[in-house]
Simulated assay, not measured.
Amino acid sequence: MKNFIKVIISGSLFLLLGCSSDKTLSLVDNEQVCNNKNFKGCDTAANYYMKKKEYQKAVTYAKIGCNNNKAKSCEVLGKAYLDGKQVKKNLNKGLKFLEKSCTIGDGYVGCHDLAVRYSIIGFGIQKDYVKSSKYFKIACEKGLYAEACYYLAFNYEYGRGMQKNDGLSVYYYRKALDFYKKECKNDFNGCKNVGEMYQDGKGVSKDLKKALEYYHIGCEKNDGTSCFKIGMMYQFAKTYDQTQGYLIEDAAKAKEYYLQACDNKYILGCETFAKLNK
């Protein structure tokens, strides 16, 4: 009877692993899901091992997943070939797999990674703002990806790879701002980015009060960069605030926030605090 129950349990587990993949499953479970040909588990395993820098395992699961049209697996495999992680560096293969990731339904991160690589010198790929704008647009509109929307707006603002268009620039900056505000609820980077957009007047009127408000939220979430930016605003209030009259220079507050930045492992905060304390 006990053996019969074991068989039933084992069979049920096999069916579960063969039919589902979920982030709540353990890594071992996701590996079994992948090996049992429910390929979403390959995405999870490949992404996990890539983040852990266990590239051999990452590539193994990424190949299985990508061969079965899983976007995250193709993204991981593309990055592995572009960066020479566990496979021989091959730019053409890397771009091919990232493009495949981008064309699959939920592959917006692959689109964004392509866009970044076409925007920046140093990846061994010729800079191409036309292609970078194309992929930023896909990532922004398909993936609701804040950073992609921001850089697409930047390209429209300065005519990089496209004709300058102030209207579309504002539209995509505002789209990025909306996404960053949503991110701010759970991620301090979103708060910092909202603060920067209000400080710089990207897609919105320059508003130092709102900028400071979001920097404070980020700083309270232990983001050293946000704390540092508050310190800068208090130290250089006259420079930052030449028209609104909202900021007042306050050396004591500046030092307070530089120290908080330092406590949150932002090195420039430590260096600036030390200089002011001489």
Rank of each mutant, 00 (worst) to 15 (best):
F4T: 15
I5H: 05
I9Y: 04
I9L: 11
F14I: 12
L17R: 00
L17G: 00
S20E: 09
Q32S: 10
N36K: 12
K37I: 09
K37Y: 09
N38K: 09
A45D: 03
N47I: 11
Y49V: 05
K51W: 09
K51H: 11
N67E: 14
K72W: 06
C74D: 05
G78K: 00
D83W: 12
Q86S: 15
V87T: 09
K88A: 13
K89N: 08
N90A: 10
L91R: 08
T103L: 11
G105T: 15
G105K: 15
G110S: 05
G110F: 01
D113R: 03
R117D: 04
R117W: 02
S119Q: 08
I121T: 14
F123P: 01
K137F: 01
I138N: 00
A139D: 01
A139E: 01
K142V: 08
G143A: 03
Y156K: 01
G167N: 15
V170W: 02
Y171Q: 13
Y173G: 00
Y173V: 02
Y173L: 05
K182N: 11
C184S: 04
K185H: 10
C191S: 07
Q199D: 13
D200R: 11
S205M: 13
A211K: 03
G218V: 06
F228C: 07
F228V: 07
I230Y: 02
M233S: 05
F236L: 14
A237M: 06
Y240T: 06
D241K: 07
T243H: 13
E249N: 12
A251C: 12
A252S: 15
A252R: 14
E256W: 03
K265W: 12
L268E: 11
G269I: 02
K275D: 13
